[in-house]
């Protein structure tokens, strides 16, 4: 079913079930976001994609990644209010991930070059977070795309963190690296060294398998998982993998 509404006054059309951010981007409207990826369920954690939506005469600021399109709504993707609030969100995030390129760059676009919320270095235990902004892409990718569910959000409130059960190496992690690939702040640390695949944040190290031709492939758990999920021949990767 087609849904009609407007973005910044421009009439647009979308399929029912689509999110506002996807439609806006399709029509060329730029909306920043850090926790959204079309491959996984929208979550609405980072709050950077704030927009204004008027529905039934009522205007409200809301994130648009988890806002399903509705007939007749009016979306505004940028104005002074939106800009100011996005800037504050980015200033909060910059305090968490001052070294992450994506955050630094986006914050700068909103005129934020340093965070007034950051405490002097060493005065708060930032190590646990280590540049993580708790966007949850790793958790969702691991659960929904890889279908392993090695990771979860643990605890709550300001103690919230992401990782394996018991703050330990998740034993079912196949070290596929999808989490590291999805991470907007590059805080997971993906490395292949001395025949090992290493995911630093999860403290996971698995030996790499090689093709018959001696090319490094991937950890055995990952290959086995992919073979099972995609119903591939057992020696699919040994023979050199997809061609």
């Amino acid at each position: 079913m087609t849904v009609k509404f407007t973005i910044n006054g421009v009439p647009v059309e979308a399929e029912q079930g689509e999110s506002v951010i996807e439609v806006a981007r399709r029509y060329g409207f730029e909306i920043p976001s850090l926790c959204h990826h079309h491959a996984v369920t929208p979550y609405g954690a980072c709050r950077v994609c704030l927009v204004e939506i008027t529905k039934g005469g009522r205007k409200k600021m809301t994130t648009c990644c988890n806002y399903e399109v509705q007939e007749g709504i009016e979306v505004i993707t940028d104005n002074e209010d939106i800009h100011r609030n996005r800037a504050t969100v980015l200033e909060l995030l910059l305090a968490e991930a001052p070294k992450a390129d994506a955050i630094v760059k986006l914050a700068a676009e909103y005129g934020v070059t340093h965070s007034r919320y950051a405490l002097p270095e060493g005065s708060e235990p930032t190590e646990e977070r280590d540049g993580c902004i708790l966007c949850g892409l790793c958790v969702r990718v691991c659960e929904e795309v890889v279908e392993v569910s090695a990771l979860s959000f643990n605890a709550r409130g300001d103690k919230r963190n992401v990782g394996g059960p018991y703050m330990d190496t998740p034993q079912n992690c196949i070290a596929c690296g999808a989490c590291a690939w999805a991470c907007p702040t590059n805080c997971i640390g993906f490395e292949e060294k001395d025949g090992m695949r290493i995911l630093k944040k999860w403290n996971r190290e698995l030996p790499l398998e090689y093709t018959e031709a001696g090319q490094p492939l991937a950890p055995r758990f990952q290959l086995r998982h992919f073979i099972e999920k995609a119903n591939l021949p057992k020696d699919f990767y040994k023979k050199g993998g997809p061609r």
């Binding site: 659960e143 569910s149 090695a150 979860s152 959000f153 059960p165 018991y166 034993q171 079912n172």
Partner: peptide, 12 residues
């Protein structure tokens, strides 16, 4: 149920 999910519950 994945262990991660139960641990998440237990700490939440």
């Amino acid at each position: 149920i994945p262990l991660s999910r139960i641990y998440a519950m237990a700490t939440f």
